[in-house]
Amino acid sequence: MVAFHTTERDLYCEFHIDETPRDLWRTDGIAPPLSKSEAEKLWVQENRPIPR
Rank of each mutant, 00 (worst) to 15 (best):
N47R: 07
L24T: 11
D18L: 14
I30F: 01
A31R: 03
T20L: 10
V44D: 01
V44Y: 02
E46T: 00
N47D: 12
V44P: 02
L42C: 04
P33K: 01
P21K: 11
C13F: 13
R22A: 06
H16Y: 12
Y12D: 08
T27L: 13
I30Y: 01
F15N: 15
E19H: 14
D23W: 05
I17F: 15
W25F: 13
P32M: 05
R48F: 00
A39H: 03
S37V: 04
K41Q: 10
W43C: 04
K41P: 02
L24W: 12
W43T: 01
E46Q: 02
V44F: 03
R48P: 01
H16I: 05
S37C: 08
C13I: 06
C13D: 14
D28S: 10
L34Q: 03
T27V: 14
T20R: 07
I30C: 01
S35T: 05
P33Y: 00
I17R: 13
R48M: 00
A31Q: 03
D18C: 14
D23G: 08
A39D: 01
G29S: 12
N47S: 14
F15V: 12
S37Y: 03
K36R: 13
I30N: 00
D28E: 13
H16N: 12
L24E: 09
E19V: 14
F15T: 15
G29D: 11
L11I: 06
N47Q: 12
Y12F: 10
L42T: 04
T27I: 12
W25T: 01
L42H: 07
A31Y: 00
E14W: 13
F15E: 13
G29M: 09
L11P: 07
T27Q: 10
